[in-house]
């Protein structure tokens, strides 16, 4: 049987590294796509030693949308599964004052993902096979003053994925939305995170892998988040707008 191939976008993220290891262990060849891919050589060596699998790094910039089609066509193998991990939390205050920064957040979490996943979707649709998974965030479930530009971009992503799922359903292509709460990574470095609802990168990786295996649509990482967000979403707007969140 032909070896399956996973393409990970945003491979430098620790979440992506754990995903690569898990899929690698389960028999996938893995393409690690990231900016400055030449600096991923120690990651490639590490994953190979750990899993005995095949890993290769490829240069990829989510913001370089004109290059996405060429990037995809030049891949050393056709992927069967694509996981998009790319994201940028950015700085909310800066985004309020400088539209350039707000746009960067929107493009890094939303419009850039639209561009690359449409390229992937076209190929999968033609092949009538494949699975697309993308990491969103619970921040997209409701806008809060502390990070609503990021949140809005992740909300856009969730809506986009839901539409894509609908469109590709008849082509047998699966689409999964992964919504973590907090993850202990470079993104949250230095923040005080509540331990019981903060996931380790490996937990997110397991959720992604299970979403692939079980063909899940929308997955919250760490079960309390589903209920936390249910409550947050149900607070009436006239109260919510007064809260300090």
């Amino acid at each position: 049987m032909k070896q399956k191939t996973l393409l990970i976008l945003g491979a430098r993220s620790e979440v992506a590294q754990s995903i690569a290891e898990l899929f690698g262990r389960n028999g996938f060849d893995v393409l690690l796509a990231a900016r400055n891919a030449d600096k991923l050589s120690s990651l490639v060596a590490d994953l190979q030693i750990r899993t005995g699998g095949n890993f290769q790094s490829v240069e990829f910039d989510l913001l370089h949308t004109q290059g996405h089609l060429d990037f995809y066509n030049a891949l050393p193998a056709r992927p069967d599964v694509v996981v998009c991990v790319v994201g940028l939390l950015g700085n909310q205050q800066e985004a309020e004052q400088d539209y350039g920064h707000a746009r960067l957040i929107i493009e890094s979490n939303f419009s850039g993902v639209v561009s690359i996943l449409h390229v992937v979707a076209a190929d999968f649709e033609k092949r009538r096979a494949g699975h697309i998974l993308a990491i969103g965030s619970v921040a997209g479930d409701r806008g809060r003053q502390s990070n609503y530009v990021y949140g809005a971009a992740k909300a856009g992503l969730a809506t986009f994925l839901s539409g894509l799922r609908n469109r590709l359903h008849n082509s047998k292509v699966k689409v999964s939305t992964i919504k973590p709460g907090f993850i202990r990574t470079r993104m949250t470095e230095g923040m005080k995170l509540p331990p019981f609802i903060t996931a380790e990168p490996i937990e997110v990786a397991k959720a992604v892998y299970m979403a692939y295996v079980d063909q899940k649509n929308v997955v919250y990482v760490l079960w309390p988040w589903r209920y936390i967000m249910l409550i947050i979403k149900s607070i009436p707007e006239f109260i919510f707008k007064k809260l300090k969140l």
Binding site: D46, I49, R50
Partner: peptide, 16 residues
């Protein structure tokens, strides 16, 4: 924390 090289013959491991 990456492992960089492992020699299955000698057991030599290079790691960060």
């Amino acid at each position: 924390k990456h492992f960089l090289r492992f020699d299955e013959q000698t057991g030599e491991l290079e790691a960060l």
